[in-house]
Amino acid sequence: MSAITVPAPAAPVTRLRLTVRGRRVLAALAALPAVIALSVAIIGGGSALASREDGVPAGGFVTVTVEPGDTLWAIAEEVAPAADPRDVVDAIVRLNALEGVTIAAGQEIAIPAQYAPTSP
């Protein structure tokens, strides 16, 4: 009798199969650089605030203490004589979340930086 040689079976070709957990880990690793970049931008974003030459922060506000007899209209005309007082009063009301235009002596109100007086 003659010997029959049978070829050895070829090694099976396997595909990389990821579990749900593995896919989540890969997605988290892929998103990590974006998360780090956003974190740095959010944390460091406050240091890049611009300010006007007189020290008032751009986009910020300054506070004014209301004196006896003051009205929002009078304050608006005082802090921004070149602007329309109606616009200034509206901006002050919105910034301070006032329910009306009534203010009391001693009350501190915020004046938008764009209308802030140049000299305290």
Rank of each mutant, 00 (worst) to 15 (best):
S119W: 05
S51N: 13
A27M: 10
I92C: 06
R94E: 14
A31E: 02
L95N: 03
T65Y: 05
A50S: 15
V56Q: 04
P81A: 01
A113C: 08
G106V: 06
R15Q: 13
G106I: 06
A48V: 11
T19M: 06
P85E: 07
V89Y: 10
G106T: 03
N96M: 02
R24F: 04
V88L: 04
P117G: 07
S2R: 15
P120C: 09
V20E: 13
A58P: 01
V66R: 12
A30P: 02
L49S: 10
D84F: 05
V20D: 15
V88S: 01
A76R: 13
E77A: 03
A58N: 09
G46W: 02
V25R: 14
Q107D: 14
R94Y: 07
A11M: 12
I4H: 04
S119E: 13
A3W: 09
R15G: 11
P112E: 08
P12I: 10
A80I: 02
V56K: 02
V93C: 06
A80F: 02
R17V: 14
G60F: 01
R52Y: 15
G106P: 01
I109G: 03
E78I: 06
V40E: 03
S39T: 14
R52M: 11
I103Q: 11
V20H: 10
A104V: 11
M1A: 13
L95V: 06
G46E: 04
I43P: 04
P33Y: 00
A3E: 13
T5H: 11
I43N: 10
R21Y: 05
G46K: 01
P9D: 09
R23A: 10
D90I: 06
N96H: 05
G106A: 04
S51V: 00
G45P: 08
S51Y: 07
I109N: 02
Q114A: 09
E78W: 15
G100S: 14
I103H: 12
R24I: 05
A37Q: 09
G44T: 12
